[in-house]
């Protein structure tokens, strides 16, 4: 008997449809494997959409389609769901009109590269491309990468002062400066946007990036929230500040690639 072809699938923990559907896929020679952030993605990806995040049903297929088109262009994407509008894209399969010939459907499916500029599938839930875009760009001209850049420009003189301060006499002044006024308002924008949106992103394919942003936010918080009081530790945090803000900006710009203009 030939080895079954693995399919990476994404569904929320509450959804038992993949379990119920597995036997018919197995008969056709496929095996479903849950998406894991650290495991490689198979050449066929199935999303059971929408996914429940505990408060909303999220339609994540738009972000995934764009991600696969850019990072895994030969992958074949299938979205299985109820749908909201008539969708004739071959990658969308209505849960109530499953194919008899899975093998034929999958083999004839065009690769995900076609989704680079257009992802026509939408299952009617919370549109996550829009949410990712709002996180990165804000509602107007409030790009988070720009906020990082402005924050860095503003605190750069302070970084120099702290590095030259031998006796620690002006460290407190600098800390006070970055915990108030313009720097604080930039940090509040960055922090609030992250706090509001990051809980929504658990089903997106960017776990490693979000984990790194989370760590950077925690480290930056020691300075901008005024959590750190130890002088030596403050000195070390300031020494790493440029690198951390630059890294944050790089990560945010990297995510921008997955949001259509």
């Amino acid at each position: 008997m030939p080895k079954p072809i693995p399919i990476t699938f994404l569904a929320d923990a509450e959804n038992r449809i993949p379990i119920a559907m597995a036997p018919s896929l197995e008969q056709a020679g496929y095996v479903l494997q849950p998406f894991q952030s650290k495991a490689p993605i198979n050449e066929i990806v199935v999303i059971f959409s929408p996914v429940w995040d505990g408060e909303h049903y999220q339609s994540v297929e738009g972000v995934w389609a764009r991600y696969l088109a850019i990072d895994h262009p030969v992958t074949k994407l299938i979205v299985i769901g109820n749908g909201m509008q008539n969708c004739d894209d071959p990658s969308f399969i209505d849960l109530f009109a499953l194919p008899d010939d899975w093998k034929g459907v999958i083999e004839n499916l065009p690769p995900a590269s076609r989704f680079k500029d257009n992802a026509p599938i939408f299952t009617g839930g919370m549109e996550m491309t829009e949410r990712l875009s709002r996180f990165l760009k804000g509602h107007g001209n409030e790009s988070l990468a720009e906020v990082c850049k402005n924050l860095l420009s503003y605190v750069a003189p302070g970084i120099d002062v702290v590095s030259l301060d031998k006796d620690g006499s002006i460290i407190r002044e600098v800390v006070k400066e970055v915990n108030s006024g313009y720097a604080h308002s930039l940090w509040t924008t960055l922090h609030a946007r992250w706090a509001n949106y990051s809980p929504l992103f658990v089903f997106l394919p960017f776990h490693a990036t979000f984990e790194e942003i989370k760590l950077l936010m925690e480290e930056l918080g020691y300075i901008f929230d005024g959590k750190e009081t130890d002088e030596e530790r403050i000195r070390a945090l300031f020494a790493a500040l440029t690198q951390r803000l630059e890294r944050m900006r790089t990560l945010l710009n990297k995510l921008m690639v997955y949001v259509r203009e």
Binding site: R16, I17, A20, Y57, L95
Partner: peptide, 10 residues
């Protein structure tokens, strides 16, 4: 709709 379908479809 989603709750009903996800519960009853299987």
């Amino acid at each position: 709709m989603e709750q009903l379908v996800q519960f009853y479809w299987p």
